[in-house]
Design a protein around this nucleic acid. Sequence first.
DNA 1: AGCGGTCAAGTTGAT
DNA 2: ATCAACTTGACCGCT
Length: 297
Amino acid sequence: MLRLGLCCLFHEAPIKFRTTTARHLATLKEGERERKISSLCLSNALALQQAILFCHHNKIGAFRVNSRILPLKTHPDMGYSVSELPEGNQIIRSFKDCGFNAKKHNIRLTFHPDQFTLLSSPDPAITARSLDELNYQCQVAGWIGADVINIHGGGAYGDKNQALQRVERNINALDKDLRKLLTIENDDRVYTPVDLLPLCLRTGVPLVYDLHHHRCLPDNLSAEEATAAALRTWNREPLFHLSSPKDGWNSGQPHKHHDYIDTNDFPEFWRELDLTVEIEAKAKELAVIRLYNELKF
DNA sequence: AGCGGTCAAGTTGAT
DNA sequence: ATCAACTTGACCGCT
């Protein structure tokens, strides 16, 4: 069975994830600050609960959890430990409830740390901050039972091979809980599937195949070939990404995402696979639901 | 209630 | 040189 996944947010459904800024927190007194963070974390745990139920009721098979589910968790000045927050126990219990419900309804949960999370940087401080971020998402992943933390290759820094060697060294040094969840995705500027596949095969880190990125930044593999190669890197249900270009393929800006998915962009040869396809489209749940109906599963 | 300014982080490529 | 894009707007504070 193929399942479609929703990324992070809702367009129409009244399910909101909250956040704050370091600047605002800095204006609060100690105590107030922790109460604010605590209430945001708890609110987000409850929103995730709603998101999972929404997916269940709308035949959406997977949900990507926003990196800011615990706002500012790894900020150098504002970072915190959840168990020390005023509502820490309740927050953790609520996330574990999310995990229980996700499992009960077979909703797959994933993470996608944002662009600042890099294992390719030559700067050790950037790598250290990235590891902090990965470890935080790994902790939440443990509570909710997420099985993917997906990152990009990052920059080339003038030498792709050296950058990829740094990625590989950093992967080999990860602790095992994190390494079990980490995946890497081809992007639309630097790293193609051909660039990443050797690293995936050597390290056991699966390739999240993004077909839209591959169409924006092709290599010598066809979509069929890249699909087959990516599938071989997975030791659990594979995860792919799909989107459609906002203004068509000849606009000069094909990497921009459309509100919806053009069914012509969905490859027929994915249809029969056991696979999760996360839908990156601005109309969010509306796009996933529309595609699901159009594909007539 | 509505709206404008602002927000932690890295890298690339378009302008 | 600046800036938008990247998986995503949301929040605060003013009117």
